[in-house]
């Protein structure tokens, strides 16, 4: 595959991963989505993950609600507690607050590259960061590496650890492993 094509694939993968971390809704978490995810895992030869994911997929309606409960519990509010808030700030600062200085730094990075969020929201959410990686992978691969190094990788492994420890369903562990795979720095 040409380098250009490789880049296109990476852009699409980042967009796909960003989508996957959004709140599960029937309008995107459908058969088409699952078949794409299946293809991706097959291509990666992640057979174990594929098995885990496909087994409970028999009843899609139930699974959607289960995933919604799981997403809420892990990323929004939950008992025993918000297990893995998907924001850089929570991991970057000792007080574990949302919208800390790192969020401001992230916003500034977006601004310097000519982008801002389309609505008033906290800029260091994982969905935004993955979407931004897609934009950069497309337009400025060097900046993409820089963003990963300075802003994404310092917190993502800590987040991933929490998701892996706290998840009850296989979906999000597979997702964070995928994100890890496509963002991890590799030696040349």
């Amino acid at each position: 595959m040409s380098e250009e094509q490789q880049n296109i694939t990476l852009v699409e993968i980042y967009r796909f991963l960003a989508q996957s971390m959004r709140y599960p809704e029937a309008d995107w978490l459908d058969d088409t989505y699952w078949s794409v995810l299946t293809t991706l895992l097959t291509e990666l030869e992640w057979h174990e993950e594929l098995n885990e994911l496909t087994t409970p997929r028999n009843n899609i309606a139930d699974q959607l609600e289960d995933l919604q409960v799981e997403h809420t519990r892990l990323f929004i509010n939950a008992v025993p507690h918000v297990l893995a808030p998907p924001y850089a700030s929570v991991y970057a600062h000792v007080d574990g607050s949302l919208y800390g200085p790192i969020a401001e730094k992230t916003k500034k990075f977006y601004g310097e590259k000519g982008y801002s969020l389309s609505q008033n929201d906290i800029p260091d959410h994982i969905v935004y960061e993955l979407e931004f990686l897609a934009i950069l992978a497309d337009q400025d691969p060097e900046a993409c590496e820089e963003f990963l190094k300075i802003l994404f990788l310092p917190w993502f492994p800590l987040f991933q650890e929490r998701v892996l420890a706290a998840a009850k369903l296989p979906f999000y562990p597979v997702m964070v492993k995928l994100i890890d795979f496509f963002t991890r720095q590799e030696s040349l």
Binding site: Y110, E131, F132
Partner: peptide, 8 residues
Amino acid sequence: VVTADTGF
């Protein structure tokens, strides 16, 4: 399978 728009 991704939405047309990003948050940017």
